[in-house]
Design a protein around this nucleic acid. Sequence first.
DNA 1: AAGAGATACTTGCAAAAAGCAAGTAATCCT
DNA 2: AGGATTACTTGCTTTTTGCAAGTATCTCTT
Lengths: 146, 146
Amino acid sequence: MALEVFGDRWSLLIVRDLMVRGFRTFYDFENSGEGIATNILADRLRRLCEAGIVEREPDEKDRRRMNYRLTEKGIDLAPVLLEMLIWGARHEPSGAPCEVIAEMAKNRDALVEETRRRWRERDPRPILPWLGGPQLVRKKRAARNS
Amino acid sequence: MALEVFGDRWSLLIVRDLMVRGFRTFYDFENSGEGIATNILADRLRRLCEAGIVEREPDEKDRRRMNYRLTEKGIDLAPVLLEMLIWGARHEPSGAPCEVIAEMAKNRDALVEETRRRWRERDPRPILPWLGGPQLVRKKRAARNS
DNA sequence: AAGAGATACTTGCAAAAAGCAAGTAATCCT
DNA sequence: AGGATTACTTGCTTTTTGCAAGTATCTCTT
């Protein structure tokens, strides 16, 4: 079985970032602070595509860019991620505020539904704000604008 | 965070086997057909203990034996495992019969509760019969008896 | 139109982890 | 007492990961 997604350090994090942090590009992941090596990132994105969890489409506006997006199969991982998050918040000192998690645990289904909605409608707002979204301001541009 | 449980190929399988297959000993894992190497198994069991997910207690009856058991923190992984199982059954050709999974998906909470009950009351019956429980008949003895 | 910068990778090599086969110590069974 | 069972460990090979650097397009600025 291709349940290998669950046996890999990075794959699930990639899925999470696509799902809840609004990540779309290689660049987003590279500069997210997760610390994933670029060769591993390329490899995992490839495997996730092969597993049918992610799909890649070239950007219309900027031909250098690839957009990565969850498939239906990928978005169906939402409940798994949510349960992991709840478990982590309950048992590990994590960054997720406890009350928020308690709230999430009560409304699992609503939260999963909201995640699906945002994905369907390409609503880029991160559903877990404390994780932070992708850096929208690029490096050099930011330097120039400041 | 010790969310490394989720980034390892074997840790979650060990937890699953403790939880739903009624595994208790090193021997159970070694001969389960999962194919885990004994040094890795020893290491993962040690780490799971250190992470507070599993606890080890020497067997009363047989002093050679160690019994491994989930802690509260470990049994709290039940919802995560269940969601993985549901996902896997929906999207991967797995051994789990579809109707059974559909049923499980409908009664998530009841199933998690039943898992907890069996664990609390040390009811060894596997909750997912098609995965198979531990081999109760040992090798040589089986050969002799046949 | 040209050069600087951005994006999505690949390549080569070192370090870490996993896997395999064999061995060991304590305990049990007859 | 002696063989079997259980729970490991040890040493070595293979695979995977991680790091630094490089490359091929494409875009943006001047």
